[in-house]
């Protein structure tokens, strides 16, 4: 089996990690200090801050 044929989770260990950070901003500096590319999301609770509505929207792919 070639690397390309393996499921993505088996390829993760062989690939360069590139991160999207959602939440604590402090993690961004740590990753950059280790040479990891990272994009920080300027996150706010979705669905007007209603967790149940946010979960529903995420399930619907919104």
């Amino acid at each position: 089996m070639t690397d390309q044929d393996r499921p993505q989770y088996q390829q993760l260990l062989a690939r360069k990690v590139e991160v999207v950070n959602v939440g604590l901003e402090g993690f961004v500096k740590d990753l950059r200090d280790c040479g990891i590319d990272v994009v920080h999301v300027d996150w706010k609770p979705s669905a007007g801050g209603d967790p149940q509505m946010a979960a529903l929207l995420a399930k619907l792919g919104v």
Binding site: E18, V20, F27, V39, P51
Partner: peptide
């Protein structure tokens, strides 16, 4: 190229 999400928002979200 992003392949991993690091998520640390409040548990409800």
């Amino acid at each position: 190229e992003i392949n991993l999400a690091l998520i640390s928002v409040p548990g409800e979200f």
